[in-house]
C-alpha cells in the first residue's frame, strides 16, 4: 500500500464526522424547545456579561439606609440586607454561576475523556484497574470530598471549579470508556491499526470524533448539575466568597428571608428564577442535542 492510499483512507474517515455534525445541527434546529432554549441562553449570557455595567450600581455597593427594599423604579429587583441592588447582583451572580457550570464541566470533561478514552482503548487489565479506581472514587460521598478539598486547600473560585470538576468526571469517564470500547472494534479503526497508524493518531482522528456526540450531550447535561452542586455548596456556606455572589448563594442567602414573619419574596424569586430558567434551558438544549447527536436516537 502506498503513502497515498493511507492518506485517502484517513480522509475518507475524516469526512464522516463532518456530515454527522451537519445532520445533527439540522436536526437540532428543527427541535423547537432546544432552539428556544439556545436563544434564551445566549440572551442570559449576554445580559450577565453586559448587564452589571449598565445597571448603574456596583454589585458590592452598600447603602445601609435602604436595606430590604421591595422592587421600585430605582431598584428593579429590590435591595438585600446591606442595601445592595439585587438586579446587579443577580446579573453579576450569573457570571459566577455560568462560569462555575462551564469551567467545572470543561474540567470534568477533560479529565473524563482522557481517562475514559485511555481505559477504553487500552482495554484488558489496564482498563480493569482504571475502572476499579473509578469505582472507589464513586464510593466517596461527594459532600465529604468537596468539603475536605475546600478545607485542605483553602477557598477560592478556582478551587471551587476544580473541586466540582473533580467529582463530576467519573460519569463522563465511564460513558466515554463504554463508547470507545464499542468504536474501537469497528472496521475503520481496525483498518487504521492494521495500517500502522500510531495510537495517539487513532485516538484523535478516529475514535474521538465518533464519541464526540455523546461527550457534547453529556457535557451540556453536566452544566446544570454542576451549577446545582454549587448552589448546594452555597447553602452550606462553602460557595463563592463575598462580596461576590452566585445565583445559588443569592438563593441560599435569601431563604432566611422567607418566613411568615416577613416575606422578602424578591430576594428569593429573582435569583431562583434566573437559576431555574437557565437550568431548564440547558436541560432542554441537552435533550435536544441528545436526540440530534446520540447514535442510539438517530433513527427515531
Amino acid at each position: 500500500m502506498t503513502e497515498q492510499t493511507i492518506k485517502e483512507t484517513q480522509n475518507a474517515r475524516l469526512e464522516k464526522p463532518a456530515g454527522f455534525w451537519n445532520r445533527g445541527l439540522r436536526r437540532l434546529a428543527s427541535d423547537r424547545a432546544a432552539l428556544v432554549a439556545s436563544v434564551f441562553l445566549i440572551v442570559v449570557i449576554a445580559a450577565c456579561l453586559i448587564g452589571p455595567s449598565l445597571s448603574g450600581y456596583a454589585y458590592s455597593e452598600q447603602d445601609l439606609t435602604s436595606t430590604y427594599q421591595a422592587p421600585t423604579k430605582a431598584h428593579l429587583m429590590g435591595t438585600d440586607n446591606l442595601g445592595r441592588d439585587l438586579m446587579t447582583r443577580v446579573l453579576r451572580g450569573g457570571r459566577v454561576s455560568l462560569l462555575v457550570g462551564i469551567v467545572g464541566t470543561l474540567i470534568s470533561v477533560a479529565i473524563g475523556v482522557v481517562y475514559g478514552g485511555i481505559a477504553g482503548y487500552l482495554g484488558g487489565r489496564a482498563d480493569m484497574i482504571m475502572m476499579r479506581i473509578v469505582d472507589v472514587l464513586y464510593g466517596m460521598p461527594f459532600m465529604f470530598v468537596v468539603i475536605l478539598l475546600m478545607t485542605v486547600f483553602g477557598r477560592s473560585l478556582l478551587l471551587l471549579f476544580i473541586a466540582l470538576g473533580a467529582v463530576e468526571w467519573l460519569t463522563i469517564a465511564r460513558v466515554v470508556r463504554g463508547q470507545v470500547l464499542e468504536v474501537k472494534e469497528r472496521d475503520f479503526v481496525e483498518g487504521a491499526r492494521a495500517l500502522g497508524t500510531l495510537t495517539p493518531d487513532i485516538l484523535r482522528r478516529h475514535i474521538l470524533p465518533n464519541v464526540m456526540g455523546t461527550i457534547v450531550v453529556y457535557a451540556t447535561l453536566n452544566v446544570p448539575s454542576v451549577m446545582l452542586r454549587e448552589a448546594f455548596l452555597s447553602f452550606l456556606g462553602f460557595g463563592v466568597q463575598p462580596p461576590d455572589a452566585s445565583w445559588g448563594s443569592l438563593a441560599a442567602d435569601a431563604l432566611t428571608a422567607i418566613n411568615p414573619a416577613r416575606i422578602c419574596w424578591w430576594l428569593v424569586l429573582f435569583p431562583c428564577m434566573a437559576l431555574s430558567a437557565t437550568l431548564l434551558a440547558l436541560n432542554f438544549l441537552g435533550d435536544g442535542l441528545r436526540d440530534a447527536l446520540d447514535p442510539r436516537f438517530v433513527n427515531r
Binding site: 431563604l255 428569593v268 431562583c272 437559576l275 431555574s276 431548564l280
Partner: peptide, 13 residues
C-alpha cells in the same frame, strides 16, 4: 426538567 432545575433547598423551603 423543572424538578431537576430547582435546588432542593428552595423546593423544601
Amino acid at each position: 426538567v423543572a424538578g431537576i432545575s430547582l435546588p432542593n433547598f428552595v423546593i423544601g423551603e
